[in-house]
Amino acid sequence: MGEVIVITSGKGGVGKTTTTANLGTGLALKEKKVVLIDADIGLRNLDLVMGLENRIVYDLVNVVEGTCRIKQALIKDKRFEGLFLLPAAQTRDKNAVSPEQMIRLCDDLKEEFDYILVDCPAGIEQGFKNAIAGADRAVVVTTPEVSAVRDADRVIGILEANEIRKSMLLINRVRPDMVKKGDMMSIEDIIDILAIDLIGVVPDDENIIISTNRGEPAVAEAKSLAGQAYRNITRRLMGEDVPLINLAGNDSFLSKMKKLLGFKSA
């Protein structure tokens, strides 16, 4: 029996889709059977980030409306064994799907997959409610900015109200140089404010833009810092205990970043 994990944030542009793509690919690299659901109906992007945009035939709305079978709509990622994508509809809106339909879909997929990752739309409206409906737990993505942290707090509250209690926080686009100067909230600061368990930290890394340009998730790239962060988060998602090392200390930026991400220090 699989597990449904929703990737959400409240605020847009903090990295939900990138996170879904990387964690999904990371889980597939760990030999899990994974399906990614793009729940952002009308603004589909997970296909593009995954580099699968040319392979879409059917979409999420077709499946819930019964136009096609689930199997027909799932796009198999040929690069990663066990990884599938269920794309969003681009020409429909969020009202094309109901929470009940999402629950049924997730329940069906749980039979066959180890992990179902749902890429949630921004906001807390109907699209969000649909995306969280079938979820067993949540990864809340934020960045060290006041607006993103505030929205994350709101989303955590709504998830709790919907009895999704195993939410974990992913802090994206951290810049250790700015944290050190006191110009960016640190991981401790954010955890202190949000009072939620941390699943990991992803540094601000230009490799993410480059890999997204190519449609190749960074998690599969050995040398990418953000990729290493996503590999660690993937393992934590599977229940492994991978230590997080904080930014305090007098090490150089690079060695600190490597420590933070769990590289062995040279």
């Binding site: 006041v146 944290v179 110009d183 600061d189």
Partner: peptide, 9 residues
């Protein structure tokens, strides 16, 4: 500035 951010938040 992060102290200010934290306090305001």
């Amino acid at each position: 500035s992060k102290d200010v951010a934290k306090e305001r938040l």
